[in-house]
């Protein structure tokens, strides 16, 4: 262990432990447990059966009762370890249960029946994953549809965001025109106006335009992000004007200058914005919650919340669907973390 910590942390000069070294080790250790722990616990729990979830204190790993198929019985029967009166132990299957008494049979010899008090037996369990937690909501409930809706919203909103924001950023960074500062001020001023401030009137506009209960009603208000325009403009300002003048001398039209010169050179900033946009739109909650009131247009976030709000909370499904909702973001995190951290550190945008 000491070698591990020595590997993980290098101490501030010398051989003696400074108190800051102790704090560092404790903080990082607690960080790993606190930050990753809940997600790991969520994934482990999501693979438990309803019975497993109901256990208290909970087991760390998901267990499932082992079952056996016995001739003459339609369903697989659960196995139990039973202590016989003579003190010997045997693994028997439960054929039927009435009250506290269960009728047990030997799988090898189905005709040999034995009546056992349920207190005198232990279920035979092995680590097992309740995949039906995942398959059932996706197949039998609407979650597959919700996921489709979420993907549609995320992809379409991101594409529109990239195109419209980059066009506006191009105009605002590479042209001098009357009213430019007015537009810029407008954009900066609304940078921090959250949705919650314009929730009510925005909803009335969505209703008036017939976008209530449509995915476009979720998409459109989110795409003209001042943040995106701002971020792209700051980046485009670093592209030398001489390159654009060279293109103009080269007979390029303004559209070509945008599309063939400026956009390719803005690729790093576009990538950052694309990643942000995907995460934002995938995670959006309040606005879809307001706009979508029919199940068939729910996004995952809204569907999940509605599901968790039902009177009879079915945790085994909720946990599994929470994991599903988390997957794209975790993938983004694993593969694109560098872009995101660089983007945030560089711009302070989230």
């Amino acid at each position: 262990m000491s070698r591990v910590t020595a590997f993980l942390t290098r101490r501030r000069g010398g051989d003696r432990w400074h108190w800051t070294d102790v704090v560092t080790v404790l903080w990082l250790g607690a960080g790993v447990i606190l930050m990753f722990g809940p997600a790991v616990w969520l994934v482990l729990s999501s693979l438990k059966t309803p019975a497993g979830l109901a256990e208290f204190p909970p087991t760390l790993l998901p267990y499932a009762a082992e079952t056996v198929v016995v001739e003459g019985y339609d369903k697989p029967l659960p196995l139990f370890t039973v202590t016989r009166e003579d003190g010997t132990e045997a693994v028997l299957a439960e054929a039927r249960r009435v009250g506290t008494v269960a009728q047990m049979i030997d799988p090898a010899n189905p005709d040999d029946k034995l009546r056992v008090n349920i207190a005198e037996r232990e279920p035979v369990r092995a680590v097992g994953f309740a995949w039906e937690n995942y398959t059932q909501p996706l197949v039998e409930r609407n979650f597959f549809l919700y996921a489709q809706n979420s993907v549609f919203v995320t992809v379409v909103a991101t594409i529109i965001t990239l195109v419209t924001n980059s066009m506006a950023a191009f105009a605002l960074s590479k042209y001098q025109f009357r009213g430019r500062s007015a537009v810029l001020i407008l954009i900066v001023a609304t940078l921090m106006i959250p949705l919650s401030v314009i929730l009510v009137p925005l909803f009335s506009i969505i209703s008036a335009t017939g976008l209530f209960n449509t995915l476009w009603g979720v998409i459109l208000p989110t795409v003209a992000t001042p943040t995106g325009v701002f971020l792209l403009r700051q980046y485009m300002l670093t592209i030398p004007d001489e390159i654009i003048e060279a293109a103009r001398m080269d007979h390029a039209s303004e559209w070509q200058i945008y599309w063939r010169i400026v956009l390719p050179l803005t690729a790093p900033a576009l990538a950052v914005l694309a990643i942000f946009s995907v995460v934002w739109r995938w995670n959006d909650f309040l606005w879809p919650l307001v706009v979508l009131s029919r199940q068939d247009v729910y996004t995952l976030q809204v569907g999940l919340n509605a599901y968790a709000g039902e009177l009879n909370v079915q945790w085994h499904f909720i946990l599994a669907m929470t994991v599903v909702t988390m997957i794209p973001v975790v993938l983004v995190f694993v593969f694109l973390q560098r872009f995101i951290t660089a983007g945030i550190a560089g711009t302070g945008v989230k």
């Binding site: 997600a39 729990s45 995670n283 909650f285 976030q301 929470t322 909702t325 988390m326 973001v329 989230k350």
Partner: peptide
């Protein structure tokens, strides 16, 4: 490690901790 939860959706965060 410390950045990981930032990307999670609020609904996911809420449900994880409710659990």
């Amino acid at each position: 490690v410390f950045f990981f939860p930032v990307l999670l959706s609020p609904v996911v965060v809420g449900l994880i901790w409710r659990w």
